[in-house]
Design a binder for these strands. Structure first.
Lengths: 347, 347
DNA sequence: CCGCCTGGGGACAACGTTGTCATAGTGGCG
DNA sequence: CGCCACTATGACAACGTTGTCCCCAGGCGG
């Protein structure tokens, strides 16, 4: 790491008090209310007066204090709170982007935070956002207890849950079709002749992981290949656990010839574990990911759209802000199987 | 998309005025100041009084209004503004994550927005954040004009530029070693016998694109293979432009046998264009990306660390908030060549 | 018994803005 | 010339909180 001293227009170290409307008013020789009128484009200000005011604003570098404004107006703070699992995860950053996009169209800023799957952290973030009087809250729930939000919701802050439902509160929720997706994955593999299909899922206390497990089971039953517990490996996964799970699944008495991976992270771990392996089981991953089509073989996935998820949730939120009082809705977004090769291997 | 009506504990539609300290005080039979003392853990409140107050807070679902608090206190709003190019881009979401991490340790929330490489949008976002009186600003500059920030900086809002320097303001800046990285890429390819090495870069008005071009040029000169303008293709790129550029480069009189891609997006476009091609030029990409090691051949890259970038910038920002008055610094983070296969093809 | 100190608590102003209402000037019209 | 309508502007309170200062009761030493 190198440190250089740059050249150019420097900003003096002298720290100046920030100008207020009062300062502007004094400089322009008008009352503070007139400044307010100019700043807010209210009518009834003589053009020449407005010009003087604008000049003063420019000279002082005045910028109106939104804290004060929000306090006085009491209504909207122009912010949306977004609590997700991890902004660094491409899936959630896609969601974030979509949320930001729509918020922008509606003149709102997004404040976001990562819960890291920790219910306490989620709560802390959500309540912090409420203290900031966000206009609405979008939450990817980490736990199952959300009654702490009831006072906020009663006070008029709309809340939409994303990707997973809340535990003990009824509110708008946007999900993807986890069960349908995994059923389709299993059906697809079975149609290619596999009857020993394994499932690697995330920790079963995570809603989506559990749903996908249910879909897997249902898929097995429908395909007539039966549900075999020894083919399921749940739990928080890292590269190591996935590798050893795979070894076990592939080398038992009746080895698995196909695999369903429960989310994008697990899929990547599987790919890494299988890299260079002589015999590769057929694979379908839940969640699409970039470059899946460029791997060899290309990875077949159950795809769903992060930005669609973000958009649906944000639309729902703004509908509430626009006064929609209808009962809470649960929206389930479709998924689709994208066959690319890795899932079309014949048993 | 399916819509269902869920079951569970519903929150009545009755919208209640949000409780204030005044309401709490009335209910607890104390003065508002005492409530304030309890909420802020100030000493001098009898335990039994505090208990009554806490009960009232709980009953009313009171949550203190941070707008009012910030207004009154005048000091910190507990927020950091982050302006980047696109939260949806994995590189920037890595940066965001690192920023959030450190901000959290220092008790700050992050407000972020995407400029989409539009200077006007960047300015709008940054000034909006200033109106919200963020404690500091982290900016991935979109343009070259940042004098609009001078009043804010004078007023004491520290600003750190990320990934690219500001145009006309001297401020803390964190960059990566773009020039050194591309020099290394070219050197690496030349060492494997290539002397027709092409460069596909982003639009040349983007600082990093221009720097990397300079590095490429310097690398060519140092390697003794000379700089040939016809081997350089700059400009905003999509899959189509990359494909046709590649066709031209590979089928001229003296075809390029190796390629440097100017950023992660371009690298992906190149990979897609080359997918299934009979003869593949050697390739080194700037920016690392997930799964680069699992492609065939694995992609050699100039790697640098998004989270290190975010961390360095945020550390710098907090140093300023802690009172560091030293002259603005420019930090250049190292990059490293990660050989994986695609760049080690012999000419 | 008096003065002083201390712990607990309250009154009030102020932060920077905006909503409400009042007021001074101006020009038109009967 | 007086009245009205209208335009341009200002005075003032209020938003919800916290900092400053003040007060009261009770305990304790002299």
């Amino acid at each position: 790491m190198t440190t250089l001293s740059p050249g150019g227009t420097a900003v003096g170290p002298r720290k100046v008090r920030r100008a207020t409307m009062n300062d502007v008013a004094r400089l322009a020789g008008v009352s503070i209310k007139t400044v307010s009128r100019v700043v807010n484009d209210e009518p009834g200000v003589h053009p020449s007066t407005a010009e003087r005011v604008l000049a003063a604003i420019d000279q002082l570098g005045f910028r109106r204090n939104l804290s004060a404004r929000n306090l006085r107006r009491g209504s909207s703070t122009g912010t949306i709170g977004l609590v997700l699992e991890d902004v660094g995860n491409p899936f959630y950053s896609g969601v974030t982007r979509a949320v930001e996009e729509i918020a922008r169209l509606r003149g709102r800023q997004v404040i976001s935070g990562s819960s890291d799957e920790d219910p306490g952290r989620e709560r802390e973030l959500a309540l912090e956002f409420c203290s900031r009087r966000v206009d609405g809250l979008l939450i990817v729930p980490a736990g199952l207890q959300h009654s702490y939000l009831v006072p906020e919701m009663r006070a008029g802050t709309p809340v939409v849950f994303l990707d997973r439902p809340a535990g003990d509160v009824v509110a708008d929720t946007v999900l993807v079709d986890n069960i349908g997706g995994t059923i389709e994955a299993v059906t697809h593999l079975a149609a290619h002749g596999h009857h020993r299909i394994a499932f690697l899922g995330d920790a079963p206390d995570i809603f989506t992981a559990n749903e996908r497990l249910r879909g897997y089971r249902e898929g097995c039953v429908r395909a007539g290949i039966g549900y075999h517990e020894e083919l399921v490996v749940m739990g928080p996964h890292d590269e190591h656990t996935v590798t050893s799970a795979l070894r076990r699944l592939q080398h038992g008495r009746e080895p698995a010839t196909a695999l369903v991976a429960g989310n994008n992270r697990i899929t990547v771990h599987v790919l890494r574990a299988l890299a260079g392996a002589a015999e590769r089981p057929a694979l379908v991953g839940f969640d699409d990911f970039e470059l899946a089509d460029l791997l060899s073989p290309p990875v077949t996935v159950i795809a769903h759209d992060a930005s669609a998820l973000g958009k649906a949730a944000t639309d729902l939120l703004f509908a509430r802000l626009d006064g929609d009082n209808s009962p809470p809705r649960r929206v389930v977004l479709p998924v689709r199987l994208v066959p690319r090769g890795s899932g079309e291997v014949r048993a």
